[in-house]
Amino acid sequence: MIFYYLMLIVGALSVIGAVFVFFAMYVDKEYSLLNVVKSLGSFVFGVFLLAVTLPSLKYVVLKEYDVVSGKCVVEIDSSGRSSMADFNMLDTDELFTFNDIPALDAYGKSIPYYCKVTVTKDHMFEIGYRIYDVKTRKLILTSP
């Protein structure tokens, strides 16, 4: 969720900042090429981030989430500072990514699990996960 809010805030600030810079250039009548390119780049980047995040804003604010459950394969990449996990849902053929997930080495890396992944209604942003043993349905790991 932090990633969603960060994208939303950066997008809004980029658009607002670009509009202020355009207005300042218009008032001062100074249109240097570098300032125009930087402002236009900031504006386009902000509009892109807002186009990605605003359709899901209703679901995040109203906490309208969907739970995708079924067999999954969890692939953990721990090459950087923090580990990232890809949840490949075998039943629905969807892929969800989470950051800072503990290792599942005791259970195996590519064996199927039973997973419940909470996402926004439009399936654009991940909220949380629960990983169960596929046979016993015993809870192995959950998101904080």
Rank of each mutant, 00 (worst) to 15 (best):
T97A: 02
Y107E: 00
L57K: 01
C115D: 08
V36Y: 06
F87W: 02
V73L: 04
P55I: 04
E75Q: 12
V60M: 09
F125D: 07
P112V: 15
K29Q: 05
S56I: 00
L50Y: 13
A51I: 13
Y59W: 06
T120Q: 03
E94R: 10
L95G: 00
M124R: 07
V73A: 01
N88Q: 07
M124H: 13
L95M: 07
K58C: 11
G108V: 12
F20N: 05
G80D: 05
F23E: 04
K58Y: 12
P112M: 14
Y26V: 05
A24L: 09
I111K: 02
T53R: 04
D100V: 15
D93W: 06
L34I: 14
G46H: 03
K58V: 11
F23T: 11
T92Q: 11
E126P: 12
S82P: 07
N88Y: 11
E30D: 14
E30R: 15
K71T: 15
I101M: 12
Y65V: 03
V27I: 15
Y31N: 03
D77L: 13
Y31F: 15
V68A: 03
R130A: 10
G46I: 13
L54F: 07
L62E: 13
V21N: 05
V73W: 04
L90P: 00
V21Q: 10
P102Y: 11
S56A: 01
S83T: 15
L90S: 02
D105H: 03
I16C: 03
G80H: 12
F23M: 10
Y65D: 06
D28M: 12
V61A: 08
V19L: 08
V21H: 06
G41D: 03
L34H: 06
S42V: 05
K38P: 02
N99E: 07
Y59Q: 00
V15K: 01
C72W: 10
F96Q: 02
R81F: 09
R81M: 09
V117A: 09
V60W: 10
V15E: 07
I76S: 00
V37N: 09
G80M: 11
A106H: 07
P102S: 14
A18L: 02
A103S: 14
R81I: 15
R130C: 09
T118H: 05
L34V: 14
M89C: 05
